[in-house]
Design a binder for these strands. Structure first.
Lengths: 138, 138
DNA sequence: GTATCTAATGATAAACAATCCTAATAGACT
DNA sequence: AGTCTATTAGGATTGTTTATCATTAGATAC
């Protein structure tokens, strides 16, 4: 009989805790206002100068998939990351482009208001408000 | 006295009707399912082979600003354009990435539900649902 | 119709975000 | 300590969009 492989084919791979991944997570948590990957890269590099851009991107993706950080994909610009990981909505300033959290309870029943889903299986939604932030109103 | 210039400095420039701009608009109107700029470029080029990519981008921007087409900026991919120009929401398939219109009346009072706007002037919002389209459910 | 003004074009370069590639490395297990 | 393989660094590459600039061609006035 053939020797059993250590891991059945369906089992997901072990995710390892590398120093780079830990530093990326800490960087997102230390930056409170929705940093871009470039912001995260800059912070991590100040502690670990040889880290690669690709590693930062890869780990932001892994952490977002895990649920450790929230990835916010905004119009017209780089993705933002948020240590705040329960679902919430965002507002973007039309002038400076900055992103802020919106103080509004999530609309859990929103998908049920769709009149005809045309067979779509709706799983989630995001809302992005657009406006002008207080400091750009001058 | 200094000769008056033909146009006072605040008057917006005349927008000209070029054949290229007309073709771009017609292409968006002929493509019903949220074409990307690349889709539009392909269609226009079949009628007008020497058009530049830059001209297509430029005109999609002009037409969107005019309100003749709607620009839909979606996560993870190129902007989409829509001949349908009254506000509505969209749903994106998580697997194939295609965009479809959502059959739901717009939530005009949504911004009023924000508990604390922190001084933000909210002007508009967009909602993007995510799910799996009928053909990807197999 | 002709002249004038300047918005718009075509072609290319550049900016920007994000992913791919490959040999080498280093966590997580025995 | 040894094995396995997920992960890394670094650079190349892709994809989308904008910037630049000399040239062209709408719009308007004459």
């Amino acid at each position: 009989m053939k020797t059993e492989t250590k891991r059945a084919s369906q089992v997901p791979p072990v995710t390892r805790n590398t120093v780079q991944r830990t530093l990326v997570l800490q960087a997102v948590q230390s930056l409170c206002n929705h940093p871009t990957s470039a912001d995260v890269y800059d912070v991590v590099r100040s502690h670990y100068p040889n880290i690669s851009r690709a590693t930062v991107y890869r780990n932001l993706g892994v952490l977002a998939k895990r649920g450790d950080v929230l990835r916010v994909e905004v119009p017209n610009g780089a993705d933002r990351y948020d240590f705040h990981n329960e679902p919430h909505y965002h507002v973007q300033c039309r002038l400076c482009g900055n992103i802020y959290d919106v103080d509004m309870p999530p609309l859990d029943d929103l998908a049920q208001r769709i009149v005809d889903t045309h067979g779509f299986k709706i799983e989630s939604h995001q809302i992005i408000f657009e406006g002008i932030c207080p400091s750009c109103q001058n």
